[in-house]
Computed example of a mutant assay.
Amino acid sequence: MTSIASRWLLIGLLLMAAPIAHGENGCPTGFLPTGGAPSAQDPGACRPMASYEQQQAPRSPPPPPPRPVPPLEWKPDWGAIAWDDERRTIGSVVEAPTENEAKEGAMKDCQSKGGVDCRLVLAYENGCGAFAISDAAWGVQADATEIGAEVYAVRACTKTGHQECHVLFKDCSRPNGFATP
């Protein structure tokens, strides 16, 4: 009988000791206790398991934040159209770096083609210009697209009551590269 009682006593002692035993002695997964056994007063320290350390990437300081980049702006390119109504001469320039250079260039182009009484009729930036004409009227317009400039120039010409307007000139002065900040 003693052997049965001692077995029950051993089982009872093991069951009472079960709550004291912790997996890895209270350390988180992947860590082992260091030093003595932990207690309620001294939970002890934990160190990573060797295999756990190998799985973790080495810690390095975070990279510095990226430097702010100033926004890019297109270089302006200008176009202009000059017209001599009496001699029906048109002058134009595209991709001029400034508005004044575009205007002067269009006037010079008109005069070089035989225009005497040339006058500036359109200056535009980073877009397209078109000049439409009929036997007795004309219209000029700028737009972001070549087809838009053509349509609006013909409309401007036909608003005077002339239906036989056609495009005499069209060209675009688009941005060419980026301006330096």
Rank of each mutant, 00 (worst) to 15 (best):
V69H: 13
V93M: 09
C128H: 12
G36N: 07
S51P: 04
P33F: 04
D42S: 06
Y124H: 15
V94R: 14
V94P: 08
R59Q: 12
P70K: 11
W74G: 08
D85V: 09
P68G: 07
W83V: 00
S134I: 07
E101V: 08
G114P: 06
P97R: 10
G79W: 10
G91M: 05
Y124G: 11
K103R: 15
K75G: 02
P61N: 11
I90K: 00
A45S: 13
G44M: 03
Q111V: 12
D109H: 09
P43M: 00
C118N: 05
Q56I: 13
I133Q: 11
C118H: 03
Q55G: 13
T98V: 05
E95K: 15
C128M: 12
G127F: 12
V116P: 01
V121M: 01
Y52V: 02
S134F: 09
P64W: 05
Q41F: 03
G127L: 12
P48M: 11
I81G: 01
S39K: 04
Y124W: 15
A57N: 12
Q111E: 14
P64L: 14
A132L: 06
V121H: 00
E95V: 10
R87D: 03
S39A: 05
I90R: 02
F131D: 00
C46K: 02
P43E: 00
P66C: 08
P64C: 02
P71W: 11
K108L: 11
V69M: 15
D77P: 06
D117S: 10
V93T: 15
V93S: 13
A123R: 10
F131M: 04
R87C: 00
A57I: 12
A106I: 02
A123S: 15
C110I: 05
P65Y: 06
G127H: 11
D77I: 08
P38V: 01
S112D: 14
K113P: 02
R119C: 00
C118S: 04
I133V: 12
D117R: 13
A102S: 09
P38H: 01
R88N: 00
L72D: 13
C46L: 01
A136D: 10
P70N: 08
P61H: 11
I90S: 01
G115C: 05
A96C: 08
G36D: 08
A123G: 12
Y52P: 01
P68M: 08
D77G: 14
S112Y: 08
R88Y: 00
A106P: 04
P43L: 00
V121E: 06
M49I: 05
A96V: 05
L120V: 06
A45H: 10
I133A: 02
I81K: 03
K103S: 12
A102G: 09
D117K: 14
E104F: 10
D42Y: 05
G44W: 04
E95D: 15
V69T: 15
G127S: 14
G79T: 10
S112L: 09
W78E: 08
E86C: 00
I133D: 00
E125Q: 15
D135G: 02
P33Y: 04
S60Q: 15
E125I: 15
D109C: 05
P62A: 11
V94M: 11
E125F: 06
Y124C: 09
G79C: 12
K108S: 09
W83L: 10
